[in-house]
């Protein structure tokens, strides 16, 4: 290469990127591109070092503005490796970075959300909550200290992604595909379970004939299939998104509008 197009990325830059991303994580969360702004914020400094040309820098960041959502703890590994990819191949790596990120975020979200947001708080919450009822803060203090430990662990995870993420990918080669497929299998199982447990819709209306009352939700819909409405809604939104006729923002406002109208007429209840 005749002219210098990028500066060397130091360990300090990587740490800084890790901490920047970890701070922002879900603090710019929106229903449209979800964690993408946080990714841009996190990587903006280190990518500026890699892409000296303004055009390349813009292209790279615009690429990171694409929808991104996974468990933030797991994202560190992905983003560390993404930085390494852009470091190696410059802006040419753009599509590979995007494919890598979108290929891994779903499977990792399925695994990560269960570990980080369900398992860990349930165990620590039961212990700390039980001790708390007796006025004892010990459980809460242990929980806090564990969080501090995990904080540093996550910084290391970003580092690991940066130093060996690519090596891992190259070494695994075709096997990475097997791994991604296996992770997708687990991820989809968990997402299938998320639909009835996270998306909630209830119809509070009941048919009344004389003294007999027939609640629609419990006596009709639940008899056909539990979580019928969430399943239908997921299918409809999935198809709307796939059709690309509406932007994500439009779909969000459609859902809110539907909720408000249904609430006004008492069709849906809390």
């Amino acid at each position: 290469m005749s002219e210098k197009t990028s500066d060397a990325v130091t360990k300090k830059d990587v740490r800084k990127a890790a901490i920047r991303y970890m701070f922002m994580a879900c603090n710019t969360f929106n229903y449209e591109n979800q964690q993408a702004p946080a990714v841009v914020y996190g990587l903006s400094k280190v990518l500026r070092k890699i892409h000296k040309k303004d055009e390349d820098y813009k292209a790279s960041l615009n690429n990171h503005f694409n929808y991104f959502n996974t468990t933030t703890w797991m994202a560190n590994l992905l983003l560390g490796a993404s930085v390494a990819m852009e470091e190696k191949d410059g802006i040419k790596s753009k599509d590979a970075v995007q494919a890598f990120k979108t290929g891994m975020m779903g499977p990792l979200a399925g695994i990560g959300d269960t570990l980080v947001w369900v398992l860990y708080p349930t165990i620590m919450g039961s212990i700390a909550g039980y001790m708390g009822l007796q006025g004892n803060p010990t459980g809460a203090i242990i929980w806090l200290l564990l969080n501090v430990f995990f904080f540093f662990f996550r910084v290391e995870l970003f580092d690991l992604g940066h130093t060996s993420g690519l090596k891992l990918i190259t070494a695994l080669g075709d096997k990475l595909n097997v791994f991604t497929e296996a992770a997708s299998i687990m991820g989809l199982t968990v997402i299938g379970a998320l639909i009835p447990s996270v998306v909630k819709m209830t119809i509070p209306i009941a048919f009344k004939t004389g003294k007999v009352s027939l609640p629609i939700q419990t006596e009709i819909l639940d008899k056909i299939m539990p979580a019928l409405l969430p399943a239908v809604l997921t299918f409809v939104v999935y198809k709307l998104l796939a059709s690309k006729k509406f932007s994500v923002t439009q779909i969000i406002f459609m859902v809110i509008g539907l909720a408000l109208v249904c609430s006004f007429f008492g069709i849906l209840g809390v």
Binding site: I191, V198, T234, L241, I252
Partner: peptide, 14 residues
């Protein structure tokens, strides 16, 4: 209801 958007988006990529 809104988590459905996130779930549906994630499904687009899987």
């Amino acid at each position: 209801m809104l988590p459905v958007v996130g779930i549906a988006l994630l499904l687009q990529f899987m």
